[in-house]
Amino acid sequence: MNKATKIAITIIAAIIVIGGCIYSGRVEYNDAVLSGMSADKYDYIHSCLGGSATQNDVVKEYIANQKYYDSKFN
């Protein structure tokens, strides 16, 4: 391998590692938000967003309107 190939492989590996860290951080954040949310809140938000909503969609909606959902389900 020449020097350019080694540098390219190192850059690609670094990008993959950084991407993995960002992805795992997002998953951890979603899990933390969802674990603090009651099942009633989750079900209500999920049904309002539609049956194909992902957990990430539910977290985004909840965070955007957290005061509303917290007051509705207290």
Rank of each mutant, 00 (worst) to 15 (best):
N2L: 00
N2I: 14
K3T: 15
A4V: 13
A4F: 14
K6Q: 10
I7M: 06
A8M: 05
I12Q: 03
I12V: 12
V17W: 04
V17G: 00
I18V: 11
G19P: 06
G20F: 05
G20C: 01
Y23K: 06
S24G: 07
G25S: 09
R26A: 04
V27S: 08
E28Q: 09
Y29C: 00
N30W: 12
A32K: 12
L34C: 01
S35G: 06
S35C: 00
G36L: 01
G36D: 15
M37K: 02
S38L: 03
A39W: 03
D40I: 03
D40V: 10
D40A: 02
D40W: 08
Y42D: 05
D43F: 01
D43N: 08
D43Y: 04
S47T: 14
S47C: 07
C48I: 12
C48M: 10
L49E: 15
G50R: 03
G50Q: 11
G51Q: 13
A53L: 08
T54C: 04
T54N: 09
Q55I: 03
Q55F: 01
N56S: 11
N56V: 11
N56G: 10
V58D: 09
V59D: 12
K60V: 14
K60Q: 14
E61W: 10
E61Q: 10
E61L: 02
Y62G: 03
N65V: 14
N65E: 14
N65Q: 11
K67G: 06
K67L: 03
Y68M: 09
Y68Q: 09
Y69V: 06
Y69Q: 05
D70K: 02
D70W: 06
S71M: 04
K72P: 14
F73A: 03
F73K: 02
N74L: 00
N74H: 04
N74R: 03
N74P: 00
